[in-house]
Amino acid sequence: MSEPQILIIRSVSFQQLDQNLPKLQEAFPGARIALLTHAHGVRQAEKYRAIHRVLAYPFKEGFHYRRRAADMKREQFDAVVIPVTNLSGTGFFNVLLFSLTIPSKRRFVCNMVSDIWEVSASRIIWMGVRHLLFQAVSSILSLLLGIFAVLFLPFGLKRLSKNK
C-alpha cells in the first residue's frame, strides 16, 4: 500500500507550524507531507525534515478560492490540513474554501494547541451559506459607513499629515 499523501496549507506562522508538525506526523503516520506556502516562506519550509516537498503559492495575497494555484489541479492528496492560529478555526473560512480547489479525499483543521479535526466538503459549503449572509449584512453596513469615510476621511488624513 502506498504512503498517504498529505498537503499542509501554511496559513500560520512557522513558529506555530514547528509545534503542529510533530502532532500531524502522529496523526498521519508514514505520510509523505507536502507544504504549500507563499514564495517568501519556501526557504524556511525547506528546513523541515518531515516535509518531502514544498510548493510555492504564486500570489502575494492570502489563500483564496479565486486565486488557484494552477499546478495543484494535477495533484491528488489523501488529506489537506489547514492549521489555524486560534482554538476554533474562525477567521479561516477563506482558506477552507480554497482547500476545496485542491483535489483531496479529506480535509482537516489543526488548531493552535494541535487539536486536529476533520471538516467535510459539505460542511465547508454549509459554512459558505452562513458566510454569504454575513457578507451581505457586512456589505450593506460597510456601504453606509463607507459614505462617511468617503466624505470625511480625506480631510481627516490631511489633518494627520506631517506638514500640518
Binding site: 514547528d18 509545534q19 508538525l21 510533530p22 514564495a39 519556501v42 524556511q44 502575494k60
Partner: peptide, 25 residues
C-alpha cells in the same frame, strides 16, 4: 518555536553550509 524547532529541522542547519540566500519573492 523554542520548544520544538531543533527536533524537527534538518541537521544541516547546525553548520554554515545551510543556504544563506534570502527568501525569494
Amino acid at each position: 518555536n523554542f520548544y520544538s524547532y531543533d527536533d524537527i529541522k534538518k541537521e544541516a542547519e547546525t553548520t554554515d553550509t545551510v543556504t544563506n540566500a534570502p527568501a525569494a519573492n
